[in-house]
Design a binder for these strands. Structure first.
Lengths: 343, 343
DNA sequence: ATAACTAATGGAACCGGTTCCAATTATAAA
DNA sequence: TTTATAATTGGAACCGGTTCCATTAGTTAT
């Protein structure tokens, strides 16, 4: 593996010059530029990333921190993020916020706090971090941001950190979902909530509740089942709701997975969706088109949001000026799982 | 941020000594060990990873390379891999084999070859690589392995690289799936294949075909639809098969997603699964329990396999001796999507 | 007590980049 | 042509670890 000194020698220039063409800063004449480029090509030279990182104090790496409950971050989105990073030769490291403990430091409490785990990522070497999900208390995030300004929040909103937060209007989305049921004539509405320990899940729930309220519809506690986005809870939730005395004609589900599982449970119990019971999903995952019946749901441009968050982080870390978007409109997708009771 | 020189000064020892306790090699007396540890704690010292990487030529990073069609590698699996790495303080970088082009080198062909893209990952700094999927021709992999022995193949098998390959017996699995249909009395069997450009998809297809053959069952070309694992192709495939003149009583699907979509299509066309047509899936994804009807499918311990592959890579890269498993038994999961015609 | 060996230690040199400053060359203005 | 100014250039010093070698302290055998 060749170094800039090799390149410099071959090109007949100084190492400073080679470095200058490498990092494309400082002035270099056309002639020497060509010489250096030729030498680099001839030697099949690639700069050593560790050396670069050491001297420039840039790691050319950003991290993505998330937990089990952060929400949907599939490989496709990850790849989108990576593509955004690629032109700048930035790498991406993925870490889990749910790690058990760090064995290197036995003085710590057995369970590393989120704060500590984020601290560790920065130490281990990255220029910035996408913090995904709303698991970390706002206060703690503010503290983190204080020490490490190069962060960006995905699917979380903190008023004190405008332009570092990227999220949907989950409240509006929950409202929209409920409104759709109401507009279709439903008044006895149940729900299988999402994970309520995060803002994300709470907001959509609140929007849903407020929509009912604004339309003078009452929802008894018996018709609210606390789920957690999983298939399992969706299934259990539907069965649980069926077991209550309170009749209902529709269920609003915290996400498409629990919606699908709910459909499965209802159907198995002899109810027809949507004729007997209507189902509203949330997320518009790929499966939503292939459930039986296909799901009416709320669509959110998650990948677009992830891309904007990434760009913002790049701007922060590397003083770039990429275009960033903060508005990600949601959309009601009407398929076949909601029956119009007014017909 | 403090350095080993700071630590050395505070502890009243030389930098060599600090380095020795840091990397835990070379002999250090109990007394100095304590002094150094105290100093480190007092300064809240963390070694600079770039400096370490530069001088030790270890990046403490491994990569995962995959493409769109590599198969299932969800966040959960990624996290499992990460947990395996964590005790050794190894980071994980994810890269996409489907990148369009690398703009840094305009001399290259517009579309970077897989080989090149892997070359780049190693250059950009990682100690080893999990190559996931079987998109790369065997010969090319052999060449890559020659230059970079620190690789491990996930969901791929190359005879020349035993103990670096981690895969299921997809042939056996395809055979098993077909056998299940046959055992249930099916003789007119159709199939929606997986992605046939990879060994993975081909092997299961071959196993399926051979099982039919071994049981003297003929499958006309009209009943073979070439899919690609997506919902969409599963849906289209089912419709296409229905349009053929040839009657059939069962479909073997390349994966659970296409199976789910096929069920959706069949049901929409008025056929009942499994009464009119039986469906075999492949993968046992979470959704398989919640389709209508729940899917009979083939289960494979993908996460366990990923963990073993990771361990093997760690052994290769860092001279460790972690336990590695090479055998990952598959299992037939009988749910409700296959009807027994013999009853 | 001394020799012969081993364990422990300090620190220079090095890894391969970036940065900065002094020196040189080119260009423009007078 | 001379001078002022700007553009290029070379390379020492540095980033913060690891390694190796020379040196010193500690142990055991004689």
């Amino acid at each position: 593996m060749s170094t800039i000194r090799d390149v410099a020698k071959l090109a007949g220039v100084g190492i400073g010059t080679v470095s200058r063409v490498l990092s494309d800063n400082g002035s270099v004449s056309q002639k020497t530029l060509a010489k250096v480029n030729d030498a680099m090509a001839a030697l099949n030279f690639t700069p050593n990333s560790s050396a670069r990182a050491l001297s420039s104090k840039k790691y050319n790496t950003i991290g993505i921190w998330g937990t089990e409950t952060s929400g949907e971050l599939d490989r496709k989105t990850l790849i989108k993020i990576e593509h955004e990073l690629e032109p700048f030769n930035i790498k991406i490291i993925v870490t889990d916020g749910d790690k058990k403990s760090t064995k290197n430091n036995t003085h710590n409490s057995p369970r590393t706090t989120h704060r500590k785990s984020i601290e560790n990522i920065f130490r281990s070497g990255c220029d910035g971090l996408i913090i995904w999900g709303s698991d970390i208390p706002d206060l703690e995030i503010i503290q983190i941001e204080n020490e490490h300004p190069n962060i960006v929040l995905l699917n979380n909103k903190i008023d004190l950190l405008p332009n570092k937060c990227f999220t949907f209007d989950h409240y509006q989305a929950g409202y929209l979902a409920a409104k759709n049921l109401i507009d279709n004539g439903h008044t006895k509405i149940a729900c299988i909530t999402g994970w309520l320990d995060t803002d994300d899940g709470n907001l959509r729930q609140q929007g849903f509740l407020d929509a009912l309220n604004d339309n003078n519809i009452d929802i008894p506690n018996t018709l609210i089942f606390e789920g957690n986005y999983t298939f399992r809870k969706g299934y259990e939730g539907a069965l649980h709701l069926l077991n209550q005395k309170t009749p209902f004609t529709a269920i609003f589900c915290g996400n498409d997975q629990s919606a699908m599982a709910a459909i499965s449970a209802l159907t198995k119990k002899g109810f027809n969706v949507p004729n007997d019971i209507s189902i509203m999903g949330y997320d518009d995952m790929n499966i939503a088109s292939y459930t039986l019946p296909p799901l009416s749901t709320i669509q959110m441009p998650f990948q677009k949001m992830a891309i904007s968050a990434t760009r913002r982080l790049l701007n922060l870390c590397y003083n770039l000026d990429l275009e960033v978007n903060y508005d990600f409109p949601i959309k009601l997708i009407n398929r076949e799982s909601v029956r119009n009771l007014k017909d």
